[in-house]
Design a protein around this nucleic acid. Structure first.
Lengths: 213, 213, 213, 213
DNA sequence: GATGAATGAGCTTTCATTCAT
DNA sequence: GATGAATGAAAGCTCATTCAT
């Protein structure tokens, strides 16, 4: 997955040069994600990012045109990850409850594997300039849609409870899942496996239509 | 509830003078909460706060010793609100499920009534200086404890499911509830009533022990 | 010795009221001298002065029209003290060497008794506004004159060495004496008695014309 | 003598680059010394310093991490100068009286050549932050020691008077010499030559043991 | 006689960004 | 490919001073 919005586009580079530059740019956004997540976008300085890389601060501008451009890249990668995982599940086989469980489980994975990116996406994307924020927002909405569609389909199929408000259910599940980013490493034994099990017990059992006995 | 940690303490004031000063200080933190919530603590300037009040920026420092002191007051008020509500319920009568429903409902109220304060508490308190952050953190932990105690008591009483992880259940409920601060005014028909109903359907039905047929 | 340049002049006060006000004004300049000496005029704030008095900062302006007016009073008192002592000696009986020893001894006294005032006079008077500085400067010059006159008279009388530069001798003695303000309490056993003895041994023995064998 | 404590250390620079940077940093502390000496450390603004250089005020921070860091450099250079000169004399040949005369003469030189630096060292170093002040203080003590050692050796050798208090003599000489910084350009004909001649006449003749007739 | 409230001006410092090299 | 030098803009904060009470 190439980093598209770099300053690099528009520059003539050999294949090898481009690859190397993209690698370094990737390191830059990794550092930026870590720093922005830890101190907040406005609380972090580009100097902090450069320090993490052993780079001079001015050199960052060789790779990115602005601090905001870094944040946009970070958010783009993060939503992209979420969307990719959700699509694979929604388009696949299985019932609504099954799919929901899979989506929840998969939503938790990026939070454990790349927490800095997820935190930036969740908490810092609001500091993006309007245009950029809208770009990310559209993708985020698509992600919510995928989840909501599964829920609505489940209701229509009678697999999920009729009285559910699908929009609120979607948001509630996402809110619950997003909260988990802060647990890894802080709550003893927090792990994707245990958390997704707990969420399944909680949310799913509340969602699934009770079988008449 | 008097504002205790103002710069004002240590000053000799008549009852009326103190009341007036506290009123103005209260307006300052209202403005600060609004601004910090909207732009983030580091993204907001004290000038923004002063502008909202038609005050000169320097005058803020007559009421608060620092920008951080403003944030601390905001957070203190916000947790105080949460704690007060939860204690009243936990110490009262009723079963675990009943209490949980009440706590959830009451957790949603401040988010609707004073969203700026709640947002600051949830998202900006991490920018407090260490000592101050710990102060708020201790109160926040107490709040979580109240909720967790209700859940644990419910499990012990057989009212809630035996296989629940009470810690994760607590965090999940809080995560779900906290997410709701962002819905008011943005999601059509988001209201404490509808949201707490949805959460009850979701979380509670998943929590409550099924009665054997 | 009434404090003349207070804001108080121009105000109608009973005799008792004036006395009380002047007493308080005296306390203010004592506090100001202590604070200005310790932190430097520009490094000290009027708040520091008020703190030392358990007074509100605004109240200082009841007694003095400005921070600079406080400094001027301090300096005025300090030079006044020096001048008074020197005049009494110069106008009295005795030889040049005798008078010089007495002047040196008496120059050291204020430094030990009211070091804050002396330090302000020596080191902070340069921060006075031009007019005020000139006022103090004129008195300081008169003080130097008294000392220099004694030296010149001593030379003319053949009591002091013919080859002395009286101006440089004056300045050298003053420089030596002024340095002593910093020794009290810092150098073990620094006292007017010991220091003036040392200075007499040093400077006087160098000044006095050697008697031919 | 390279400027070691600049912000610049830790930066990779070519020899030429470093030389250029140090040159500019040197100009900055020259300007800072002039301004601090004239208005006092707290009375001077970094803007004043920048103005003197035709530089923007923010640019100063490229060379120095703080206003206080500038003052420390200034003081360091100044004491360094004093120490260097005194060591060369003390370690050289000659009797005590001879060495004292040389030290006095050499103490006067920096005051004439770089009065701004000397004034900062003498009068502004007390505004340095504690750690920094102690650093300078230690070097200053070493300087006093050199002078005092010469005096003590002179007494032991019978060259100087037995009844001298070597500590007070040291301080008196230094006080006298330090006062001279203010004379150049203000007292007609004040020059190192004339002043050191006067001081020798004064202090030395008082110090030296009289030969028995 | 003293002070609460407020403010204008100014301060040091930080920071994203630029650009010649 | 990277950086040294510099800067414009703004930030948080301090402070002497004023004035109605």
């Amino acid at each position: 997955m190439p980093i598209s919005s770099l300053k690099l586009s528009g520059t003539r580079l050999s294949a090898g040069g481009r690859r190397r530059a993209e690698k370094r740019a990737g390191e830059v956004i990794d550092a930026a994600a870590a720093v922005f997540a830890a101190r907040g976008f406005h609380g972090a300085s580009t100097q902090d990012v450069a320090d993490r890389l052993g780079m001079r601060q001015a050199s960052l501008y060789y790779y990115f045109s602005s601090k905001e451009a870094m944040l946009e890249q970070i958010c783009l990668r993060s939503v992209g990850d979420f969307i990719g995982r959700a699509l694979a599940i929604a388009d696949g086989p299985g019932g609504a409850a099954e799919k929901l469980a899979a989506i929840i489980r998969n939503h938790l994975v990026p939070g454990e594997e790349r927490p800095a990116f997820v935190r930036c996406f969740l908490r810092e994307r609001r500091f993006l300039p309007p245009e950029s924020r809208r770009r990310i927002g559209r993708v985020a909405k698509r992600y919510e849609r995928i989840l909501q569609d599964v829920i609505e389909a489940g209701i229509a199929a009678g697999e999920l409870r009729r009285d559910l408000d699908p929009r609120l259910a979607t948001l509630a599940i996402l809110g619950m899942c997003n909260a988990a980013v802060d647990w890894y490493g802080k709550e003893p034994d927090a792990s994707v496996a245990r958390i997704s099990a707990a969420f399944a017990g909680l949310a799913l059992d509340g969602l699934v239509a009770r079988k008449e006995g």
